[in-house]
Design a protein around this nucleic acid. Structure first.
Lengths: 241, 241
DNA sequence: TCAAGTTGTCTATTATCATAGACAACTTGA
DNA sequence: TCAAGTTGTCTATGATAATAGACAACTTGA
């Protein structure tokens, strides 16, 4: 590690570039703990404060994340999440070489609000099953999702989901062989307390809010949902043209 | 010209890099005058002193040369000077698209020292012709050279050189159809006052000192010489392998 | 000879860079 | 529960970077 002084490039920048190179070429794997600040300072022969400046620059760009008392970690690469008409969480995560998981948080029945009824083609007040779930890639929570289905069409959906842990499999259980995404709206907001806990996300961090409705091959609404994605863990890919 | 502040790269460095790019891609031709410091400061939107810092860095590396009261000029590219067994100044300079010139400074007779005699295969004290010459590419002095030849074998060499201004032609005048470089030694030192004047070189600047002996096709020594090259105007290319 | 334009040098001020040390706050594993 | 190790924060000091203005020294062309 030979740094050049008075070359017009600040030492902290040279250190930051060095660490970034290490991340890029895999010497520091995603999720892995970096050497301690003192050790980095040692190897580059600079002051610990200079290393902190370098790490702060990398953290600003989301490449690393410091955890007080524990260490500084290489941020997992963002999950590339294509927004297509055929959107399957398990397929997207699996395509990235990671293991998809789903988990039931809560299931209950409630009457349809006017908006939910319109989305699902039902009457206001019609009985709905509400399923709250969290979805993970490997061990990292990606999003929490609130799903509404007709309780008449999908009786006992909550219990089924608890077993199959996948919306695709749940629908298949009720004879739905294929479905597609009918509409998608994306906004963003600050995470609320309960989602923060479920996503293992710090308070004040942004989440991407995706409202969508899936329909069967005849265009008949099956499920409408609101998913909240940890913004720092995904990037949505929108097909252009 | 958009420079980034607090990016860890000093402004003067960004300006210097920009100018160097301009030289590299030909926007500023060799020998050409750069825009004035105030104008450069204007286009990069920095202080004139910052520009001066950038130009100083470039001058340090020999890329530009400032002339007080006149301007700052792009230094002529260094002359690529291959060190081969067949070394002809005029051919090397001509290959670079520049016009070679030679000029006699002084010619005199003197007895051979022990070292000169050994190099030329003569006895110590044998009469030698000493020819001092300067060689230029276009109007730029490249090197001054002191040449020693046997006065017996090459009588009146000084007068001949004054006319032909080329060692190759001088030897041809005495019936030498071909010759080659037998040995070459390269060292470096600081220019002395008389060479500085002849090379139009500032005092304290380095010169490359090349000691060499040319021999005819039979290996018989013809001329031994010590040439001093303005280090900032040439780069020697050594054939490897 | 002179005016305009150029580089060189000086002083001064403010912000950033880099180092140094001390201690707080926190996590981890024994 | 505790010790060791980690990141976070504070103060302090000197060097470098960048800005600003003024004027000297010099070149060039009219």
């Amino acid at each position: 590690m030979s740094l050049q002084e008075s070359s017009g490039v600040a030492l902290w920048r040279q250190v930051a570039d060095g660490i970034e190179r290490g991340i890029a070429d895999g010497r520091f794997a995603a999720g892995e703990k970096l050497p301690g600040e003192i050790e980095i300072a040692d190897t580059y022969r600079v002051n610990r404060h200079t290393v902190r400046r370098a790490l702060a620059a990398l953290a600003e760009r989301g490449l690393v994340r410091a955890e007080r008392g524990s260490g500084t970690y290489v941020e997992a690469q963002r999950l590339a999440y294509p927004l297509r008409s055929r959107t399957r969480f398990s397929e997207i995560v699996g395509a990235g070489g990671r293991e998809p998981r789903g988990q039931l948080i809560d299931a209950s029945e409630e009457p349809a609000t006017r908006e939910l009824a319109r989305e699902l083609g039902l009457k206001t007040g019609a009985p709905l099953v509400r399923i709250e779930s969290v979805r993970l890639a490997d061990r990292t929570p990606i999003c929490v999702s609130t799903n509404w289905l007709s309780a008449d069409r999908f009786p006992g959906a909550g219990a089924v989901f608890a077993n199959v842990r996948s919306m695709t499999k749940l629908l298949a259980h009720y004879g739905v062989r294929d479905y597609r995404r009918a509409s998608t709206r994306v906004t963003a907001t600050i995470v609320d307390a309960s989602d923060a806990a479920r996503l293992d996300l710090a308070l004040g961090r942004p989440v991407l809010v995706v409202d969508s409705t899936d329909v069967d091959t005849d265009g008949k609404p099956l499920v409408t949902k609101r998913a909240r994605f940890a913004a720092e863990r995904v990037e949505f890919l929108v097909e252009n043209g």
